Amino acid sequence: MFPEEYVARQLLAFTRPGDLVLDPFCGRGTTILESTLHSRRAIGTDVNLVAACVSGAKAEVPALDEVLARIDHLETHFVAGGLSVPDGEFFEYCFHSETLGELLFLRAELRWREDPIDRFVAAVALGALHGEAHRSPNYFSNRMPRTISTKPEYSVRWWKERNLAPDRRRVFPILRALSRARLSILAPSGLAKVALEDARNCAEVFSEHEGEVRLMVTSPPYLDTTDYSEDQWLRIWFLGGPERPKRKMSLDDRHTNKENYWDFLSEVWAGTERLLGSEATIAIRIGGKKLDVDEISNGLSMSLKKGLSRGFHLLDAPNTSEIKNGQLNSFRPGALGKRHEHDFVFRLH
């Protein structure tokens, strides 16, 4: 999880209001949102459906009255039935049948890829899709973790053993209440755009911003730590993905081979270079189960040399911090390996 404070420090140290910031691995959109909150412009990409939806909703924030009007319209036009229910026991045990009917309707109706209002509604729905339902009435599912989507077979077995059935949750009122909470403060204005796209294609997607980026601040997927698409499979399903989790749902969000990992990052840097200004700064937070700080330092330097045609230098010694409530612990509580992440800042010249 990318902390707001880290991004804010980079913004205040290396940019001024109006400067353009890039994050090729948007994730939850922390870089995008913090940039706009600090009067910077921001662009970014992510190949994961959930990340692109959530970060895109933070990039282009609609007005509350537009969101409420859209939810009202959806509720008015909702008709129960007519949409096929996914096979298997999972969806039967995960959602009350009436709640599932409303979710299936939203899944079919929301044009989240094209429309900012629908994207915001979809992002709010993703946050409520599953969680600790016994602790909050704002989760649609039976009891589940909030951070990851547990596998169907495990989930059904767990619910059966505890005789847990999903409560009826009314989707539209919950969406209204959560939207009001999210938009209780006026959203920042200014340029911010997120594309559902491979990070290696940044310069092509945002070609109109060639040479404008003052700061790239990002956190690539950590080596051999988690498969984001597999861990978020139910939210991906809601956005139009498959009904069951699959290994390697995305080609680029999990890496287990060090050599391939650094090659991938060098391709990302190459794919962003045309956007970077003459003295742009690159701030990277990175970690991995199989990597120590020296390996990361060498790997990053090698990948930047391979990917960039310009020179660069490290501004200061890397900062190391323990992962406490971050990717490693949240996704795999019992995981072994390195439990630290490292911050590097490079300056182009």
Rank of each mutant, 00 (worst) to 15 (best):
E243S: 15
P333E: 00
L291V: 01
H77S: 12
P318Y: 03
G311D: 12
P188R: 07
G81A: 09
V156Q: 09
H349P: 00
G240P: 10
H77L: 06
L215I: 01
R113F: 04
R182Q: 04
R135Q: 12
V213M: 14
T45P: 14
E102Y: 01
R107I: 03
G44S: 07
F344S: 08
G101E: 08
R347D: 01
T225D: 04
T256Y: 02
T256F: 04
L276H: 04
R200T: 11
L196K: 06
I174S: 09
G299W: 06
G190S: 12
R9D: 15
E132R: 14
G288V: 01
G190K: 12
K338N: 14
E98N: 07
D72Y: 11
E89H: 11
T76P: 01
R180T: 02
H38T: 01
R169T: 03
L191N: 09
F206A: 09
R182G: 02
H130A: 12
H340C: 03
R347A: 11
E60I: 02
I174T: 12
L178V: 00
E60Q: 13
S189G: 11
V213F: 12
Y139V: 03
N325G: 14
R244H: 06
L186T: 07
E5N: 04
C202G: 06
H73L: 09
L103M: 08
K248V: 06
G81P: 00
E212W: 11
F344M: 11
W233L: 03
R162Q: 13
L315Q: 05
L106T: 05
I43C: 10
G29Y: 09
R9F: 06
R332E: 02
F331A: 08
R9T: 06
R40D: 08
H340V: 03
E66P: 00
E295K: 06
W112F: 03
L336N: 11
D65L: 12
V205D: 11
G288E: 02
V79A: 15
D115Y: 02
L234T: 00
G334N: 15
F2V: 02
K305E: 15
L164N: 01
G241C: 07
A122T: 00
V67W: 08
P166D: 05
E153S: 14
I117E: 08
K324T: 04
D46P: 08
T150N: 15
E259Q: 12
D253I: 02
S278I: 02
W112V: 04
I282T: 11
R170N: 02
R247C: 04
L239A: 09
D252M: 04
Y228R: 09
G44K: 03
L175M: 08
G277L: 07
R244P: 01
M249F: 10
N163M: 05
L315T: 03
P221M: 00
L265P: 09
P242V: 00
E259Y: 03
S229I: 00
V50E: 06
S309G: 13
F90R: 13
G307Q: 05
I236G: 13
S219C: 11
A199V: 05
E34F: 01
R285L: 13
D115N: 14
T15H: 14
F25T: 01
V217L: 13
